[in-house]
Design a protein around this nucleic acid. Structure first.
Lengths: 190, 190, 190, 190
DNA sequence: AATGAATGAGTCTTCATTCAT
DNA sequence: AATGAATGAAGACTCATTCAT
């Protein structure tokens, strides 16, 4: 057997890291961060406890990776053209996309909401959150300003707050929450 | 040398229960439920660990009492006249009252939001929450129906979701969140 | 109200002591010594925890009193005339009496057996046990010697051992253990 | 650098399990179950508290294993040929074997007797005990029946009760109890 | 890269005992 | 004589983390 090449090692690492992150996300979402032990994750992922520490230096770091990995979609989605003007259709598309993400990644969003408000987690990720958050605000303020709206900053913040509120209520009650109607109302409100 | 009277005991107990609930609420809000130990609470309250169990049979029960104690204001506030019609001013008053509560009880609301999405906590309190929640929905649906609005149920749910969203964003960023402007916007939106 | 006389106090004390001992015996028998707390006993007896310590300086001492109080019947029963000769009828009466005690005080004997073999308890009471035990042995040895039996000491000890064995098996299986037949066999065996 | 093989792990585990069971048995026998803490056992065995739980999921389970491990000799010994007739020599051999076991495993029997009457323990092991017990009874009844004895069931139960009685008295007073003489008497009594 | 035995600090909880009243 | 609030040491158990192999 020829020794594995550097690329092969790299690939193994990637596969394992993804496996662990995915497993951890599910367990964190179902049982909460504190009630999920490294052992739980390791055995659910079919690897040993010790190996976890080959990839993540601590449970906290694993959590960070889990959160950030879930954020990727989100960030990808945000890559709007950095222009000086912004059209209504873009905002509508953004809102729509948001709702789609929510519906398609309930797992991740449950985790996101269950963790984002735990002080420890928030502290861990506040920087990353802030960056995204401020980009968004900036765009929305720009939009409202262009529209000539009153209190554009307050409106922007209210819109984002509303998104989170909807997310929480939807995830707490997926069966009955009238998401599609609420989506329409939100867009009308613009 | 005579034993204390029942009233004296009662008073001691009340003082201690309040002290413990207050201390626990603060620590839960700051550090989260799981990261706050009974030891932390006891020493912050200046009592012994053992005494905690004289008043609360478990950490879970303490949490429950903490949450319910905080809910009292809220419930009091909700005692609207049970009529068949509801006026706009009542809804405005309700929204206004809500914002005031939020500003005046940031401590409790931080706890509320940080805990409400932990599965364990939710399970513990879901019944109590549901009752309040459904009362609210009912009233708001009534309001929108009277107003002849389209999709009254979706609107009611959106409004409550928006409140929670605002709550979260405000509490995560008390300093910069434009609460008063947002309050006005919310009322206008009715 | 005239102050209580010394005798009245004495009587109160006696009533309370008996109440506590009786209650403790029941709880110890049902749940075991370690699993019965002073609180349990106090509340079952309808008194306060603190008062317990007015009558018994410690839980260990309470146990001791409980055991000794139960032994009283037993000891009373043993008061055979201290003579130099002993008749078969006396031994038979003794055995018979023993069986009767067993049947009439199952509660106490359960406790006795469940506790007597716990090292802590045995240590606590070994002196008291020994005294009784040696009196018995002495008498039985005398009986077997008079009878001209071989190995009178071994026979005496075997007889006492057999009693305990019967007691244990009977109490572990009151429903099915053929106590009356065994009683007859034991007496025949003399 | 390669991980240990499964066999190596297996060996480590066996050594540790045996060490823990042995240590626990001694301490349980000396101090009783409730008065022996996991800490006591761990430090007597020279391992950490945490490691205990790698091998036994609870103190109760440890007790169970300790009892069952001690029972093994016993059960091995009981494997008499399942025939329809049973000879006196077999019973004698059985009794003899019993006495030998008692002398050779005083540690285990002390534990057995100190625990068998604690309700909790009995509940934990009653099934296992019952099986053995009923096998024994069956054999002895068969023996007495073949012999044409009167009341074979009562005799069988008396014999087993006597064994336990002897066990208890011997273990409470190993130095002076005339075990060999009692053994002879027991055999003669058949 | 991979394993799982081992550690030890920390968690919730219980309870005998003390003490002010 | 009587109460029950208060203490603190101890107990069973968990788990992130380390490390020899």
């Amino acid at each position: 057997m020829a020794p594995r090449t550097e690329e092969q090692f790299e690939e193994i690492r990637n596969i394992k890291v993804n496996l662990i992150v995915k497993t951890a996300m599910e367990l964190f979402a179902i049982n909460g961060y504190d009630s999920t032990s490294i052992s739980n994750i390791a055995s659910a992922a079919g690897i040993s406890k010790g190996l976890m520490y080959n990839y993540f230096s601590s449970k906290d770091e694993l959590l960070k990776k889990v959160m950030l990995s879930g954020m990727e979609n989100f960030m990808l989605f945000l890559e709007v053209k950095d222009v000086d003007s912004i059209k209504k259709e873009e905002i509508v598309a953004f809102i729509d996309g948001n709702f789609n993400l929510l519906q398609e990644n309930t797992e991740y969003y449950k985790l996101y909401f269950s963790l984002a408000f735990q002080p420890k987690v928030f502290a861990l990720l506040s920087t990353e959150f802030m960056v995204i958050f401020e980009q968004l605000i900036e765009k929305l303020v720009l939009y409202y300003t262009q529209k000539g709206a009153d209190k554009p900053y307050a409106k922007a913040r209210l819109l984002l707050a509303t998104f989170d509120g909807i997310g929480i209520h939807y995830l707490s009650d997926i069966e009955y929450f009238p998401l599609d109607d609420v989506r329409k109302l939100t867009i009308e409100m613009l």
